[in-house]
């Protein structure tokens, strides 16, 4: 009963959290570029405007697919906090991301399509990370739901150093930060125009934005999971990680997809896989 309320709370509050985070991000980035930057609530203004705009659907399936993208992103968070099995959550998370790829791929524009192809490439490399991460957390704590891991009396993180480092790399992809923003980018000056989102307008683009807010909140929840004994420390850890991402975003150029693929696989297989493998070997 209690956990279901947490799930509902996530659905309602996560967009606020994600939107505000995006607002802080834009302002901090602007400061790093010696600009003042937009108001803190700018992401909300943007989405509000997009909802008022006329929507051009290039393909009738794009709308439902993107709605699915938002719903499944929200569901991922709800299921996580609602006490569902962690591995299952990781799968739903992957499914949510897949909806965006399908929606972008359904548009008949080369930019959107190439963006979808690139997104799929990094998705294939990064989604196993979340499954391995969950496996690691379950192995260390011996329990398999969010609440139980948080109630576990010992720290999970010290036993998962590889996963913590890999988390930073994968989060760069998930948060669409340079150098790994190859499928779409927050600053729209790349060779694929706006990549995945090139053909989405009005309401559809708003869905993508909102889903992205959910995604940020889910990553934050994952961080709390890793720092299980105290959620304020988890939040701080996420804050530090996010600050690092912003710093890296502002001090690197966009990588090419081969490098992205190599580093994601390295993060997933070597760091994360190695970490989980070590747990099983030592734990035996």
């Amino acid at each position: 009963m209690n956990t279901a309320i947490y799930g509902l709370l996530f659905v309602v509050l996560a967009p606020l959290f994600g939107g505000l985070l995006a607002g802080v991000d834009r302002r901090v980035s602007a400061r790093m570029q010696s600009r003042i930057g937009p108001p803190l609530l700018q992401p909300f203004y943007d989405v509000g405007k997009l909802l008022q705009k006329k929507t051009r659907q290039v393909n009738p399936v794009a709308g439902p697919l993107l709605l699915g993208h938002v719903i499944f992103m929200a569901a991922t968070g709800a299921l996580l906090l609602g006490g569902t099995d962690l591995i299952f959550v990781a799968f739903v998370f992957a499914l949510a991301a897949l909806f965006l790829v399908l929606a972008a791929g359904s548009a008949n524009s080369p930019y959107s399509f190439t963006g979808a192809e690139r997104e799929l490439i990094v998705l294939l490399a990064s989604e196993p990370f979340f499954i391995l991460m969950m496996a690691g957390v379950c192995k260390v704590s011996g329990v398999s739901t969010f609440g139980d891991v948080l109630a576990y009396p010992q720290w999970v993180a010290p036993q998962l150093p590889g996963i913590l480092i890999a988390f930073l790399i994968v989060a760069t992809i998930k948060l669409r930060k340079s150098p790994f923003d190859i499928s779409t980018s927050h600053h729209p000056h790349q060779e694929l125009v706006s990549g995945l989102t090139t053909d989405m307008s009005g309401r559809l683009l708003a869905y993508v934005e909102v889903a992205h807010w959910y995604e940020s909140a889910i990553l934050c929840a994952f961080m709390v999971l890793l720092f299980n004994r105290s959620w304020p420390i988890g939040l701080v850890a996420f804050g530090v990680a996010y600050a690092l991402e912003v710093l890296v975003d502002n001090s690197t150029s966009r990588a090419k997809w081969q490098l992205v693929l190599r580093s994601t696989w390295a993060a997933t297989l070597v760091l994360c896989g190695g970490n989980v493998l070590a747990l099983f070997v030592i734990g035996r």
Binding site: P179, D181, S185, H187, H189, E191, S251, T252, S253, R254
Partner: peptide
């Protein structure tokens, strides 16, 4: 040039 290779800063 920097903008083209994704280095907005």
């Amino acid at each position: 040039g920097a903008d083209a290779f994704g280095f907005e800063n």
